[in-house]
Write a protein that binds this DNA or RNA. Structure first.
Lengths: 226, 226
DNA sequence: ACCTAAACGGACGGGGGCGTCCGGCTAGCG
DNA sequence: CGCTAGCCGGACGCCCCCGTCCGTTTAGGT
């Protein structure tokens, strides 16, 4: 719905739009959401003005660029829910979501912050979380998932997964895989497990997660950084 | 050793040095290592030149500002090692290190990156890791820590802990506490645990990986400003 | 009280990212 | 084939941050 653009769009404009989206995906994946818009434009081989005309804000660009991954996220959750064994489904969800997030740096923060202006973005996010919540309920009922698991723990793990850095993308994915395995074993129900400290409300998170806002200069426009 | 400054330092210079260090600790804790040097200077109530004269590079400033925490880190490791029960010592180390890192945003990245130029910084880091490695060995021998644990897993967890964000510092600490508890249970030796995927070499990480500056744009990613 | 060396901080030039304007180009219709 | 509306991208002004220079202030010894 968002992109109900009239196909009365001139052909070159159409082409550029795709070029920009491809470039954005590549740049955001490699450098994160805080990458300069300029960089995306350069990579797409267009001028900055063209980029800004197509996507007036970075938020709009990111929302459009990550629409696919957002959908993938939901698909993963649904596939997990479809698994006859809820615990296996749950594990799969953890593993695949971690991998997805390890692949590009930008998507995680996009997912976590869930820009308020990109409505359907947040909607898919909520739908994904709701699906996983249902899956978690079943896994608990099956006695496989620890009963004190809450949805915020999932957010916690995704955030944590996002903190993992490495020299190469490959190393990051590998590390992320190991992390997911550890997380799963921590979430597995077990009589040996001591009770956990209380969960903290986490999401959604103010953007400074990635971006540093404060520049207390009275009067001037606020500055932000990441 | 590092700070063998002649106490033939003028009194105002001495005072300013302390003011700067206090400001740096506060700013780095609140905003992270990427905070502008200017901000530290403002907070300390000195001019930029003064700051640069005392600490020619941000690295030098951070190394000095975090010396205390760095020492605390090592102390934690040593106390863990001193515990007669190695597994309890290990758990304590995890919990306390996570808490320490949750408290200020800057220290984690400082610890992870371990600036190559700040020699003794890296030295303490290595010493800390070595101590924990020994503790881990004992905990494994006691049959409490899973045998496939490697030191990189600790790095992994610290990095992950660093990814945790929340609205308030208090919430972050709470989340971090829960995370630590989960991590400990994942690392606990258990016959139920499946083998883990291979560990990946992680540290140290180039500093720019962590964050990158961006500017604020009204109505877009920036959630709030003062 | 004075004098000097040391320390201070305001100010400067450079660099980079941001968002926008405008003159030139081209797609695509008549 | 020619025209026009729509699109493009170079260039601009803005702001913030960085690191350094230099005229001014001040500590502290005589």
């Amino acid at each position: 719905m968002t992109g109900r653009l009239p196909h009365t769009l001139r052909s070159d404009a159409r082409d550029n739009r795709e070029l920009i989206l491809d470039a954005a995906r590549a740049v955001f994946a490699a450098e994160g959401l805080n990458a300069p818009m300029r960089e995306v434009a350069r990579r797409a081989g267009v001028g900055p003005a063209t980029l800004y005309r197509h996507f007036p804000t970075k938020e709009a660009l990111a929302a459009e660029a990550f629409r696919e991954q957002m959908g993938a996220c939901l698909t993963i959750a649904e596939e997990g829910l479809a698994d006859p064994d809820p615990w296996r489904g749950f594990r799969l969800v953890i593993e695949r979501i971690c991998e997805l997030h390890a692949h590009d740096r930008g998507f995680t923060t996009a997912f976590m912050t869930a820009f308020p202006n990109a409505m359907d973005f947040a909607a898919v996010r909520e739908e994904t979380l709701r699906t996983i919540a249902e899956l978690a309920r079943r896994a608990k009922d099956a006695g496989a998932l620890r009963p004190d698991f809450v949805l915020d723990d999932l957010i916690l793990l995704i955030m944590a997964n996002c903190g993992i850095q490495a020299a190469s993308p490959a190393a990051r994915v590998a590390a992320s895989r190991r992390f997911a395995a550890l997380a799963i074993q921590a979430l597995q129900a077990s009589p040996r497990h001591a009770p956990l400290p209380p969960a903290a409300r986490l999401a959604p998170v103010p953007p400074h997660t990635t971006v540093r806002p404060t520049r207390h200069h009275p009067g001037t426009l606020a500055g932000k950084t990441s």
